[in-house]
Design a binder for these strands. Sequence first.
DNA 1: GGAATTTATTGGAACGTTCCAACATTAAAA
DNA 2: TTTTAATGTTGGAACGTTCCAATAAATTCC
Lengths: 335, 335
Amino acid sequence: MGDKPTSKSVTVFDVAREAGVSKSTVSLVLTQSDKVSDKAKLKVEKAIEKTGYVYNRDAASLRSRRSNLVAIVINDLTNPYSAQLAVGLEAQIRKMGMFSMLVNSAESVETQTQLVKNLKEYNVAAFIICPAPGTTSDWMNKLVDQGFPVVNIMREISGAKVATVLPDNFTGTKLATEHLLAKGYKKLAFIGGLESISDYHQRLSGFTEAMVLADKSVAKKLCIQSETNRNGGRNAMLEVLDVEPDIEAIVCFNDVIAYGAVEQMRASGKIPGKDIAVVGFDDLEDSKLMSPSLSTVHVDANKIGIAVCQILSNIKDGNRNKILVGVDLIERETS
Amino acid sequence: MGDKPTSKSVTVFDVAREAGVSKSTVSLVLTQSDKVSDKAKLKVEKAIEKTGYVYNRDAASLRSRRSNLVAIVINDLTNPYSAQLAVGLEAQIRKMGMFSMLVNSAESVETQTQLVKNLKEYNVAAFIICPAPGTTSDWMNKLVDQGFPVVNIMREISGAKVATVLPDNFTGTKLATEHLLAKGYKKLAFIGGLESISDYHQRLSGFTEAMVLADKSVAKKLCIQSETNRNGGRNAMLEVLDVEPDIEAIVCFNDVIAYGAVEQMRASGKIPGKDIAVVGFDDLEDSKLMSPSLSTVHVDANKIGIAVCQILSNIKDGNRNKILVGVDLIERETS
DNA sequence: GGAATTTATTGGAACGTTCCAACATTAAAA
DNA sequence: TTTTAATGTTGGAACGTTCCAATAAATTCC
């Protein structure tokens, strides 16, 4: 463990000898400099091939004080949307010519702190962080002040002076709610999520806004918080049915909540999409495949990746922008 | 992008000066050597704290030719079991005092090849690979021959001379099938999976073995391959119902297939767990939470992580063991 | 065609750590 | 006490790259 192939490794010097140039020229080729002649470049490339040279990024990064390693710190990889997001980010970062490494904080601030501490030792070029609950603005600001480029995603941290990329939560639930109202549903509820999560308020506001614009009152009793898992969705749905047996449509905090809600409807003898309409948020892969397929607010992970990369490419100006990534309503069978 | 805090960084020399010892002593403390006095160690630790020193692993790894970076190359992070697995691996590796970085090949051999090439440049200590379909034994053997410690997981690659950790697929489906037979179900089917995947054969064999031991014949028509997603499960279930309308129990290639099968049963007017029993494989988080909860074969991601770490810790002997990780049948409401 | 300029190439120093052999100190054995 | 051994500490060299200033070669200008 921790051991490495001990055979003497091939270095720029070996390549240089093989190519009949100096080590410096080899280095210029490796760093894709344009001030090297095509002839020399070709010779070097041949020599690299022949010698089986592999670039040593440790040495490069030590000397140049630069790195193309971007760390993605994800709050919970077992959460399907997070996984989708991570993959989207990875793809965009790779397109930028950078290399990303993914680590999982498992929703623990302690783990997150430890991970970031370690990642600093690896000389990462930037941090993309989907923060664990309880992350303080102090901690984040310290990271930024130390000079690390940081992009915060998905969850806002109030007081943190850091660039942030979020889905447009407000618009998402507003669209969803308007859609249900337009379909003629009169009695709506909003279920799932906890007010300790920053996006809860944004999503609830979207719902409220649409209701108010349609001259509907929003009953507190029909805005039911819950754990953001299937069980939470089931329990919240049960409560809704208890408070208002004739409920007609449900706006869910996210798709997982919607899955639970759909299950509970069935258990309570209601047919989802027929007796009660449902709209989710996230557009997980299952939402399209399940039956009935789930209407939901699509949040494109690639778009988030693109926005993050945009910030990353000119973060030197101490970019503290907030980017709201556009969302799309996908109408399917449950509405 | 690619830029780093340009401020002159704190080095071992600064720490040494602050602590009143030599840089070598500082280094000994950093590497947790036992040949440094407690007094000196304490002074150094204080100085590290005071100066805000951060260890430079690039320099360390360059000089020592060692690394504690383990790369985990996962075939598809959006697959819920893969994500669970990645998290389990990560946890165990961290317990070993190593640091893991996760990358996603997205089931593409090309991406996988590119990723591994890059990771070599980062001087990783070992590779844990869940190979993309189409991965050749030649490629894997070359990696091993280059001296990199490699552990192959989940999918066997025939001809590859590499240590491998797999769930005990055979025993898993055998247990599942025996369980259904013991419950008195007579007409069983096996659905899902494609024979191009290595674990398909193992799981199917487990089913067949249990059937044969119980003096049942296995009808080819009731072993139906399909894409390993929800749709695949639905289609396979539809086909089963077509071939044998009185089917009593289904052994599924994995949980996702089971989810699809359950949906199709409902759509076809059958009640899962009552009219038709179902057993899955993997034990995803949803399987416990869904309704009715899914009986399934539990594959503990942490156990796989432990087995991988075992191999990793004495891989120097050119370990080519195959470890079959034990599985457990979890009986729930669908059987 | 020679001077001025641009373009390519080069060797030496530096990045921050660990290794190593030499030294200094302390403890144990004689 | 002296000798031997064990223990702790140290400065210099090395890891493989990029940076830099200097040189060499090719091109342009008058």
